[in-house]
């Protein structure tokens, strides 16, 4: 594979993208999970699908590449994130309602666009489940820019985002512009989703944001450690998932997510075994 990697540009692009999203998806995912917004990623990914379908439709009807599906997906994702924020303010007592509204809206739009184009070919399949060969050089550049934006914003607003996640009331009293920061955060989420879709696909992108965090939260002390472990889990699953997906000719979305679930189960079981051993040792000592 290494020789193929050197030989074929599309493989290099895919692996570089994989390495990048293996960092940014769990990084942002850590905030998404502790803010109990895990399902928002799902909602936004389905809106992104509508955007991609729109882009593919344009491509098919006009024959020109005015807006590539990547950018139309990104645009829809950002618009979706703004609507999620608005809806959460309308339903302050039922904030999770924003999720099914946006999610079903996304799927509905996708169905309409897809049928208007009389169905799509393998391209759409790649967008749904990810692909090892779908990242163009242009996409890669956009993803690098997204990664730089995401990392810079998180670096600069880390303490505000952290306080807002832990204790929103305290954040407001402190003088933090909660609404603005929240808005920035949700737009970042939209960006990460758009960047990740090429590799893991629409249906599984939220898994890459939440599963590494689910595993790391079991063993980490504190929030920074949670982020670091989540990135290690995410990166391991992405690299192994891409390699195995390539050899087994399975869309990498499937292999990456199953690896993440395997890592999650291993972590939970290992932790339980260690705890049992510790308490047995303790009982032997005291008993």
């Amino acid at each position: 594979m290494l020789t193929n990697l050197l030989e074929y540009e599309f493989l290099r692009n895919t692996f570089l993208t994989g390495i990048i999203i293996g960092i940014i998806a769990p990084l942002l995912g850590a905030f998404v999970v502790v803010r109990r917004l895990s399902l928002i990623a799902d909602a936004l990914s389905h809106v992104t699908l509508a955007g991609i379908a729109f882009g593919l439709l344009l491509e098919k009807k006009t024959g020109a590449m005015l807006i590539t599906p990547f950018y139309s997906g990104l645009g829809f994702s950002i618009i979706g994130s703004v609507i999620v924020e608005r809806l959460r303010r309308v339903y302050t007592a039922f904030q999770e309602l924003a999720i099914p509204i946006i999610l079903s809206g996304g799927v509905g739009l996708s169905v309409i666009f897809i049928s208007m184009a009389n169905g799509f070919n393998t391209d759409l399949y790649n967008y749904l489940f990810g692909s090892v060969s779908a990242v163009s050089r242009h996409d890669l550049y956009s993803i690098i820019i997204i990664a730089i934006i995401v990392c810079t914003v998180i670096f600069l607003l880390y303490k505000e985002l952290f306080l807002l996640s832990f204790d929103e009331e305290q954040a407001v009293v402190t003088g933090i512009h909660a609404k603005r920061i929240h808005f920035v955060f949700i737009v970042l989420t939209a960006l990460v989703i758009a960047a990740s879709i090429r590799i893991v696909g629409v249906l599984l992108v939220s898994a890459l944001m939440t599963l590494p965090v689910a595993a790391s939260i079991r063993i980490a002390k504190g929030f920074k450690q949670t982020i670091i472990y989540a990135i290690i889990y995410g990166e391991t699953a992405v690299i192994l998932g891409l390699v195995s997906g390539y050899y087994l000719e399975i869309p990498p979305g499937g292999t990456i997510v199953m690896l993440l679930i395997l890592l999650l189960i291993t972590t939970i079981v290992t932790k339980r075994v260690i705890e049992n051993l510790k308490s047995r040792k303790h009982r032997l000592k005291t008993g």
Binding site: V34, L156, L157, K159, E160, F162, L163, S165, F166, D167, Q170, A171, T174, G175, I176, I217, A220, K221, G222, F223, K224, Q225, T226
Partner: peptide
Amino acid sequence: FPATVEEVVTMGLTAKLGYF
């Protein structure tokens, strides 16, 4: 919530430090 005691106490400095 995965936050250490040190991380929680650090939050108290957010206003003093200001953005960025």
